[in-house]
Design a protein around this nucleic acid. Structure first.
Lengths: 226, 226
DNA sequence: AAGTTTTTTCAGACTGTTTTAAGCTTTGTC
DNA sequence: GACAAAGCTTAAAACAGTCTGAAAAAACTT
């Protein structure tokens, strides 16, 4: 089991290294974002522990570039900031977990274990369902022989639906996930976008359908029951 | 999987409820410590999510009394204060975990999963009885070789019946659980929906039957007598 | 600043759900 | 077996949730 720790506070970095080595991990220690990224791309690690506030390149940026380079190593972000926004931002960029400083070693160990267990899973840069492919980096939806660009909201909604094909997503939850929990957008906004999406599915000639569950929400349907 | 959420910030409470319901938990929401304690003692929950700052009785006190009453339900404390002292106080009173606000849903989910895992149960997203399967996420009822979509009320009633196959549910209790205690719906409404359901069972060719217990209510019957 | 795309808003058409009510069937009692 | 009470079934009306096109508003591009 090989770990990369990227942390600029030398004291903390060393402590972490020590803790993890005790647990029989092989540890590489690095003190800034740039080296972090280099190491991460060069070697193959089981988990990367990454501070957010880093010299040269910050943690978010590191994850982002790592993912752009199609590297799927699980990343655990360390953030001193207790802001929800930051946490979410990190996860959006492709981090797998985060932890707020200060923390207890036990928690860190538990999270690292959890992340390394996940190895098998791949972070794909596209979502597929039946004859549709949603490219996450270009915001485009590809059908059998055509493709089309999606607007931001369309994209986010479809990404949600495709993240768990078949599962019903309540309108409420689409609203909070796509518009944010602060927003005062209404159900009809979701309905309008669902309508746009259906039109585009149709244009692509896809067999996929967006099913309505009355009083609840929407879900993708492929070639099966009603 | 049944959750109790005790949180006085209505917005937050609702969001939490929504998040958890999405994950197929059954959620009871309550907005002050006193009701929290009542509910906790009355029903059997898998996990209780409990805010610390609460009207009437605070979270610590709720845990304390709960434990005094020999109730061992896992409790996850929500604390706005970031003081280690508070955390420890909560844990001393018998809470099983704590989380500092604000937090990201993922973290909450992870912790609730961790707490409920002790019970060893699995979150099922379908209910089965004999040859019927009720899919909770798509509101569909599947028979041996056909399936059919259920309306909201039909679904709720059947979910209730299937949650405890064989048990007799009084019409009264179906009314309050499905229509709500405010409603002035009458027995005949239940009767009408039972009729709809029987028709659908029939369409699916199921061996399952809805039995009537005169002057009381209904229950599922499989391959045996009444 | 004009043009383009995305997002929101609105209203009317539409659809499936829920209620209601009346007639019919079953069950239990005398 | 007759009667009343409880339960069943159905059709139709009332209702509520959903869809969609059009247009206004907002956000980007050029």
């Amino acid at each position: 089991m090989k770990l990369l720790i990227v942390e600029d506070e030398i004291r903390l970095a060393d402590t972490l290294g020590q803790i993890m080595r005790e647990q029989k991990y092989t540890v590489d220690l690095v003190y800034d974002g740039e080296s972090g990224l280099d190491y991460a791309l060069m070697e193959s690690y089981d988990v990367i522990i990454l501070d957010v506030m880093l010299p040269k390149i910050n943690g978010f940026e590191v994850v982002k570039r790592l993912r752009q380079a199609k590297n799927a190593t699980p990343v655990l972000l360390l953030t001193a900031r207790d802001e929800t926004r930051d946490k979410i931002e990190g996860l959006d960029y492709g981090a797998d977990d985060y932890m707020t400083k200060p923390f207890v070693p036990e928690e860190l160990l538990a999270r690292v274990r959890a992340l390394s267990r996940r190895q098998g899973e791949v972070i794909l840069n596209e979502l597929c369902f039946e004859d549709l492919v949603l490219k996450l980096d270009t915001y485009t939806l590809h059908g059998k022989n055509k493709s089309i660009r999606l607007g931001f909201k369309e994209f986010e909604i479809l990404k949600l639906l495709m993240s768990n094909p078949g599962m019903v997503f309540p309108k409420e939850s689409i609203l909070t996930k796509v518009w944010g929990s602060e927003s005062d957008a209404e159900d009809n906004n979701v309905e309008a976008y669902i309508s746009f999406l259906r039109k585009k599915f149709n244009y692509l000639g896809s067999i996929v359908t967006i099913g309505t569950v009355r009083k609840v929400g929407y879900h993708l349907e492929g070639l099966h029951d009603s």
